[in-house]
Design a protein around this nucleic acid. Sequence first.
RNA 1: AGACCCAUGGUGUAAUUGGCAACACAACAGAUUUUGGUUCUGUCGUUCAAGGUUCGAGUCCUUGUGGGUCUACCA
Length: 554
Amino acid sequence: MASEVKEADNFIEEIIVEDLAQGKHGGRIHTRFPPEPNGYLHIGHAKAIVINFETAKKFGGTTNLRMDDTNPSTEETQFVDNIEHDIRWLGYDWEGSTRYASDYFEELYELALRLIDKGLAFVDDSSAAEIEAQKGDIGVPGTNSPYRDRIPEENRTFFEGMKGGEFADGSRVLRAKIDMAHPNLLLRDPVLYRIKHEAHHRTGDTWCIYPLYDFAHGQSDSIEEITHSLCSLEFRHHRDLYNWLIEALEIFPSRQIEFARMNVDYFITSKRKLKLLIEEGVVTGWDDPRMSTLAGLRRKGYPAEAIRNFCTDTGVTRRDNQQTLDLLEFKVREVMNRDADRYMAVLDPVKLVITNYPADRTEQLDTENNPEDESQGTRQLPFSRELYVERDDYRKEPQNRKYYRLAPDKDVRLKSAYIIHCDGHEEDAAGNVTQINCTYYPDSRSGEDTSGVKAKGTLHWVNAPTAVDLEVRMYEPLFTDPTPMDHVERDFMEFINSNSLRVITAKGEPALAEAGVGESFQFLRQGYFTVDTDSTPERPVFNLTVGLKSSYKG
RNA sequence: AGACCCAUGGUGUAAUUGGCAACACAACAGAUUUUGGUUCUGUCGUUCAAGGUUCGAGUCCUUGUGGGUCUACCA
């Protein structure tokens, strides 16, 4: 019973703590996440989801999922499924079943009638252009519509006629009767209902009038008895109308609170622009791993937990903010470092021959799956005379002491195997290294090293005879500029990074070919990689999720 | 031009609500390391400006400055 008093971590929670102290709504906290089902959820939505769900959870409340589907022209059932899937993937479950603003069309219609009867709304025969002209301007009062003083009975008749399909699209609208001189343009007799003879994804042809955002969102909040309606800053001006309607309609007083939306370097979240990227063929679809969509980030391999932590740890304020990719990637590495098994794959392979190792011999070596988590156990690695190592791990000329990798006369350790001595290389006519020749120290075997040889560097490698080819998709940010939308004189498309995707063929441990879609690994010394949805056992495909940090300045 | 919102290290967020400016990321330096990863240690800001109230101001007041939002029958 005695629920402890929670401490507020941000300004929204301060408001809630205060409401709780005053016993508002009997101590009940209920939030909602209200997407319009007209596209895919992106990293910005994740922030809103996390805020709404985590805030409610913290204070013992629940969160509704409500599709804000009041515009039949843009909305599709297909998007509903994706949205639900993405939210569940993020780790959240909403109260009851998914709600729909369209479920409230009848109630909304009744509320409109109530407004009409109170003389607070009127049917306007003005055209869209006329209404725009009546609006006035910032700092300039508007003018009253000639239809503003229609009596309630007449308004009722016309509004019922609108609903009955008697009028053409655009011929009439229902408007609130507020104040055409109000400093907030939204309160200058805003349009509440429009006529649209269009089928709705859920209600079909039942309706030909549809409420606008301002006459659907707040009212839906009230119908669901949402206590705290958390939304982003750009809705600040709508709050005045939100509150005006609560008072005029005498409905449940939900409270709207606005927070600053989250921007992330190198990501854009404009639905229109994302769509353009697809149409122009810059990316392959909504779930392209370079997209800011949750579908894209998931496919790239970002763990839901990392995205949640990122959204939580960046806080909730009213300040414009630009989050760095560094922090997001740190959060991704943080969980993947803990969870991902280490495997070896050579991204740019070159053959390495251990000249003093018998050609007919293969031995099995033990290696730990995850040094961060012993419970993940060990596995065996085949080792023989011919291996693949990273081309970049070899230099033709002897190197200085700060260089730990392969070069003539250098000793290095092969991870979980032997220390080898580099003798030199072979190259083709163009000077490309075709083979590295080494000798190994037989008594330097990992775990039982009695050689006394010191090797500063440890390299990853793959046994050549058993290696499998992996298609690896190396990703970079989609843009060359962290804020491609912030250039007034230049289009964001000018900042497309031509290297955002590089496809290579790597050599990997055989077990990697059997990994299931979505499984993640650390490729030792390279980064974290996740099995792509295109992957098959015959043709394994991995996405670079995020590279390892490196302090090597070579 | 009206109304509203915002201002703390390179980035983002804190500061017991008026009481020694803290945390994370980044960067740099060092230690550890069979991943140049991880881990550990250290370095990096007198809070946009100017006034005011106060014993005391990041916090309150005033005026500036800078940034943002709003004129869809979109959400």
